[in-house]
Design a protein around this nucleic acid. Sequence first.
DNA 1: AACGTTATGGCACACTGTGCCATAAGTCGA
DNA 2: TCGACTTATGGCACAGTGTGCCATAACGTT
Lengths: 190, 190
Amino acid sequence: MEVDRGGRPALTSAHELAEVAQNLFLELGFDQTSVDDIAAAAGVSRRTFFRYFSTKADVLWVESAAEIGRFQDLLAAAPPDEPYDEVLCRAAPEALHHPPEQRTWALHRAQLILSVPAVQEKAAVRHAEWRRIATEFVAVRRGSTADDLVAIAAGHAVLAATLGAHEYWLAHPEEELREIMSRMLRLLLP
Amino acid sequence: MEVDRGGRPALTSAHELAEVAQNLFLELGFDQTSVDDIAAAAGVSRRTFFRYFSTKADVLWVESAAEIGRFQDLLAAAPPDEPYDEVLCRAAPEALHHPPEQRTWALHRAQLILSVPAVQEKAAVRHAEWRRIATEFVAVRRGSTADDLVAIAAGHAVLAATLGAHEYWLAHPEEELREIMSRMLRLLLP
DNA sequence: AACGTTATGGCACACTGTGCCATAAGTCGA
DNA sequence: TCGACTTATGGCACAGTGTGCCATAACGTT
């Protein structure tokens, strides 16, 4: 944890900005919402927004660091003799699982990711971190390195399953994302 | 084909702009090359560049339409009783295969796609067309629709294999991209 | 020569993202 | 209480992207 060394208290927070932004996205659409709009709605200057998020689309991934942390923890805690595909099929769906009260926003975010090109673009880069972690994990378990064909394939499979699961989820929102993700991973993992 | 109805002859072409741009990317780097630089080097105005390509990164996908066309043709020409995974494993690697003289530029493009975030972002969207076509193809062969879990997974597998194959190729440039792509697809296709 | 057609050039504009600097608002120690 | 230090904010200028709009250039046809 960070030590409080005084200083001016923050007027806002990443989560508050993200909430304001998501509401505007719902109301106006992603492209039609400018950073000025978000900053104004949050009672903060444009410059300050860019201190919390380096791009407009990044507000959609406030939880990203936490999810990635969970993913890494789950991988690290897995029994060393468990096959890597079983570990991934368990860890990945669990890591991106949301509590029910976040379901509506998760659906909205999924829709933005799959439909708005500008968001879709950023998503690929954000998800690359998941891919990197999975590739590394598989490489270690296989006793190879990160340029191993199977490890690379597994990393991309995790990424593909994440996107594919969200796509299927949008068409079948009554199902559980975690469950879909698990099925998708079993289909794709090498 | 288009009918020539007169009009002012074009000063340049998409391929010429793409060639000029790629050389500048090699020389200065992608982010350090502005559209003004490209336009000036091609002896054309900035506005004209944006009539040929809607974004700076799009010059990297001049061949995209041709590749996608080949992919669709190969899928359409496949025997109706051949399993869908075998068709894809044959068609996709064949469609993105380059003649040897384009190899250097293909490698350079692959490097840009995997290393420069701004390019990586666009790549995901450009490749979405491949994904859509594969999903549609698998859905038809399975007698389902585009919201079928397996079809969605297959579509993302094609996308993942494309990216993964390029990643492996960069680490092993002495191998054939077409061959790598084929192996990667067999690992990933459901 | 007049006309339609197509490509180009130039300009203004909104927006993103960054660097820089001044200022506000806290804490801590003398 | 005062100053030093620390952190958050605001404002501004700037480069760059991408778009809309309009004028103009260069071709063909009649």
